[in-house]
Design a binder for these strands. Structure first.
Lengths: 137, 137
DNA sequence: ACTTGACTTAAAGTTCACTTTAACTTGTAT
DNA sequence: ATACAAGTTAAAGTGAACTTTAAGTCAAGT
């Protein structure tokens, strides 16, 4: 099966302009053309899905392109790609850790506001703030 | 104890320009001034820490300012603030979920490259790709 | 033949979150 | 007294990641 840019845009929840932009930026290697129009195939979805995952973790376009270019250079870049993957894995792990810290802060605030709303005033629960989770550890 | 903008910048790992920018944008309510210079106190660190947490989860400045403004309007905005907190909590939870999906993808890639490097070629492990984690569920 | 809708490119525009610059003031040290 | 380090503002500049615009191509339907 093959897909138009519009179909891919709908499937991947991005605009057609964004897909062209990604292609122009070299994030989508070897997109087929028929009469100048892009034609996407199953193989391209593998890239699109990896791409959306890389975007999810805020990997900059420049770095994604680096990775894509390495894949285009064959087995000689296997080690370099492996190291990029390891590095990104560490980044994800520390992102999750940071998010969990923030989650605790928001959960604390949630409880704080529950009590303040029940009491009708913030003053009434201000002493609770002393037990706030530390943000700097 | 009170702190200069430079000291705060060092403690919070941001530039002094960024702190002034945050202040100008209304993200730091009621910063004291002495001879026109900003003077930070313990109370301000509470805001700075909440702010760095809000930045961590990519909360836009506009939304952070909304929250800060609500806090300045007293108890009548308790419910509104509570709802903002709940909403942000959900955003964090879905971010963690997305990150964990991405982590799986990168862990799969890690194994893939380990095998490819051991085999000396990608071709040798290409069939493994068939068992790649689905990105769209 | 002609309109329509989806595609194309190159280039300019937008938004966000800062960052830098320039001109100026102030407090401390020599 | 003077230099200098650190603060101030307003405004312009930056970089990333798109988005929009303008001008054009192309295949299908009436």
């Amino acid at each position: 099966m093959s897909y138009t840019i519009k179909e891919v845009a709908e499937l991947m929840n991005v605009s057609t302009a964004t897909l062209r932009y990604y292609d122009d930026e070299g994030l989508l290697p070897n997109i087929k053309r028929v009469n100048g129009r892009r034609v996407f195939e199953e193989e391209d979805f593998k890239w699109l899905k990896l791409l959306s995952c890389m975007k999810e973790i805020n990997m900059p376009i420049k770095k994604i392109r680096e990775y894509v270019q390495l894949t285009q250079q064959g087995d000689s870049t296997l080690q370099a790609r492996f190291e990029m993957i390891l590095q990104q894995k560490q980044i994800i792990l520390s992102q999750v850790e940071e998010l969990n810290k923030c989650l605790k802060v928001f959960e604390f605030k949630e409880e704080y506001y529950k009590k303040a709303i029940a009491a009708g005033s913030e003053k009434a629960v201000e002493d609770m703030m002393e037990h706030a989770p530390k943000l700097n550890d």
